[in-house]
Design a binder for these strands. Sequence first.
DNA 1: TCAAATTTGCTCAAATTAAATCACAAAAAT
DNA 2: ATTTTTGTGATTTAATTTGAGCAAATTTGA
Lengths: 247, 247
Amino acid sequence: MLLEERLNEILCILEQKRTVTVQELTEILNASESTIRRDLTVLHRKGLLVKVHGGATVIGINYSTKDDDVATRQDLNRDEKIHIARYAAELVQANDFVYIDAGTTTELLIDFLTEKKAIFVTNGINHAKKLVQRGFTCYLLGGELKLSTEAVIGSEAIFNLQKYNFTKGFWGTNGVSLQRGFSTPDINEAMTKKESMKQTKEHYILCDSSKFNQISPVSFALFTEATIITTNVQDEQYKKLKNVKEV
Amino acid sequence: MLLEERLNEILCILEQKRTVTVQELTEILNASESTIRRDLTVLHRKGLLVKVHGGATVIGINYSTKDDDVATRQDLNRDEKIHIARYAAELVQANDFVYIDAGTTTELLIDFLTEKKAIFVTNGINHAKKLVQRGFTCYLLGGELKLSTEAVIGSEAIFNLQKYNFTKGFWGTNGVSLQRGFSTPDINEAMTKKESMKQTKEHYILCDSSKFNQISPVSFALFTEATIITTNVQDEQYKKLKNVKEV
DNA sequence: TCAAATTTGCTCAAATTAAATCACAAAAAT
DNA sequence: ATTTTTGTGATTTAATTTGAGCAAATTTGA
């Protein structure tokens, strides 16, 4: 295994797990402790991760005692999100033309994609970068870039969407409700989601359990218009619905 | 097997696998280690892959252990580039509609921009991010994202360019020559530069002194078609020309 | 707080890989 | 026909990477 390959792997693993121990890495990568330590040192020096006693964490994670609750909570949903993302990734098949909406949940999806014959379009610049780095063919949607979400949204984005005919698409959401469907706080974001869904045949909403019965200011689709991929559904009334896929 | 054929094959294999070892290539291509090594060196020099210990990786995944060299190289002409970028930034006025081409020299330009009333379009995703973070209105060009340059290039990018009418535009270049004009190694990149220049009224090429009398494989503009912003010109024959602005 | 357990950074030797050199054959130019 | 150029493979030498061992530093648990 190439040194670079290993470094890359470490970053991928870290991206998913947020933290990793030296021990885990020696097993996964089949290398000695010395090697892993050296690798971590290199990546640490390059500012691509943070070395901590016993392993490494992604940059920016804050494990101070006060934030313990927040960190734990984030990690909790993270496992859910990984589950959801992994399942969703399997839905992508050869020759699919896939739209991936900007957002943290859909970003995870990219880590689990395997079908190199599919073509992807996204409005998230980080998503695009990640897709290309993983070797997928990826088109970036043109239009105005908004800082808050690092996504391309707005009227030009909507215009540019109109030429595409996607076979499948994946979206995140801030709220899910039977009455109000899927909703998000920003109107431009909502309009972009709406237009991209219009151009897509099969709609998948990735959504962890915390989003159910939440309503954000602007709705972008009816509840029945998409298949919801989720996990750990609490509310019984959602369990029975055929467009709710619990994984 | 022909040399060209082998080089091509290596690039194809790399495109799929992202990384490859010398050992693997000797087996797949049925050639000796020496040959494979030579091939990799050629492709590395051409900038089509990155040689690493034990094999090669695609461009863009750069976790190379010796970033010292890269950092040094980038810093080499940094003072020159800063000079050039600062001057170029002053050219942008209120109500300008500005195109900024992807590339390291143009990225520096963004740091010195002040005119918030101008609107920017770029094909570089890092450029776009930086612009938005600095509070400018920025549109990202739609199209296929290439890993090597982190830029949007190709036919769709060219199509999307056609609707714009820029007042000013800034480009980088790999080579400047009186006979061959401005040139760059990649054809898609060249075509995108060419099209964006077509849609722009005033053309500025940012270029440090090392680029003079260099010729890259594909030309994207005649020498007379743009104003060159540069510094420290060695060659006397360029000094007199009125479209060479030495700062 | 202190001792035990774990983790770290270091050196060194072994293994692997890179680069340089030489030899040879085929193709191209003279 | 002969010289030059180009491509290939083998060999040797230099450089890099790797894994193990060990003392020092850190963390853990009583």
